[in-house]
Simulated scan of single mutants.
Amino acid sequence: AVAAVEELAKLHAPRWDDPTLNDLDWLGGRSTPEDIAAVVGLWAMFLPSFLETYTHHLDAPQLDMLNAFGERIEGWMNGRNGPKTVTHGDYRLDNLLFGDGTAAPRVTAVDWQTPGHGSPVVDLSYFCGAGLVPEERRTHDRALVRSYVSALGIGGVDADEAWVWEQYRRETFAGVVMAVIASQVVGESERSEAMFAAMATRHLQHAIDLDSLALT
């Protein structure tokens, strides 16, 4: 996990708060009014079918969190602020290859279908939220955020750790949105249901553990 977040900082740091990224039309994730309206519409469209399949995977607090967040999704997206950079958009274990750092890089990220220009901490919270089982993630949340901030510093970015931590808490919901929407637009299989169930339960638990709703 440390290797993964340090590699993520190597992606984010070189173009941190770079205004010239606005000129790259092919980068998505900018949270324009049109983007926000699209996500809100997709959430409303897909939530019923998501619940039909995944409700039995969720415990009562997770289901309550899902419903409470759904009422605030537009405000949550509108409330994003701070520096932007190049983002991966789907930085999770299925898309990471791990090596020994000599014959192969420590981490290689694949699946570059969703590169964006947005909040860097979305990638960080998304990876940690589902990449670690909740018991381990609770233990290492703070240390992983600290490792990320330190790696940004090596890349020349002086990020405020308190701000990164607040955004990390707030962006637990990015994984929730991905779990709800993406689960309804891919082919159904036993493996896909297991994967999206893990994503949904872990991201919702992340939000519960960090009281993320208070920041929406």
Rank of each mutant, 00 (worst) to 15 (best):
Y148P: 04
A194I: 02
E193L: 11
V177N: 05
R191C: 01
A130G: 14
Y148A: 02
W163H: 06
R142K: 10
G153C: 10
R191E: 15
R137A: 04
R146S: 15
A194L: 05
S183P: 05
W165T: 14
V177H: 05
Y148Q: 03
R137N: 00
G187N: 13
A130V: 10
S147V: 01
D160S: 05
E136F: 00
V176T: 11
E161V: 12
V176H: 06
M178F: 14
E193C: 02
S189I: 04
T172F: 03
D158F: 00
M195F: 14
E171W: 15
Y148G: 02
A143I: 06
E190D: 12
M195C: 00
R138P: 05
I181K: 03
D158H: 07
R146E: 15
T172I: 02
R137L: 00
S192W: 03
E171H: 15
D158A: 14
V157E: 07
T139V: 13
T172N: 04
M195K: 08
Y168G: 07
L144S: 12
P134H: 09
D158M: 07
V157T: 09
E188N: 13
H140L: 10
A197P: 02
G156K: 03
D158E: 13
I154G: 05
R170K: 15
V164S: 03
G187L: 08
I181D: 04
A143L: 07
E171C: 11
E135M: 08
D160F: 00
A174M: 07
A197D: 07
A179N: 10
V177L: 14
A197E: 09
V186D: 14
F173Q: 08
E135S: 15
E190I: 01
R138T: 02
L152A: 01
R142Y: 05
W165M: 12
H140K: 09
M195A: 08
S183H: 08
S147H: 15
S192V: 15
E190W: 00
S183R: 08
G187C: 06
M195E: 10
S192R: 13
A151W: 01
V164R: 02
A151T: 06
S183C: 06
A130H: 05
E193T: 12
G156E: 04
V186T: 14
A194T: 13
F173N: 09
V176I: 08
A151M: 03
Q167A: 09
E193V: 12
A197Y: 04
S189V: 04
T139G: 00
R146Q: 14
V149N: 11
V149Q: 12
D141H: 15
G131H: 04
Q167D: 09
A182T: 13
S150W: 03
Q184K: 05
S189L: 09
F173C: 08
A197W: 03
Y148F: 13
W163C: 04
V180S: 12
E136G: 03
S183F: 08
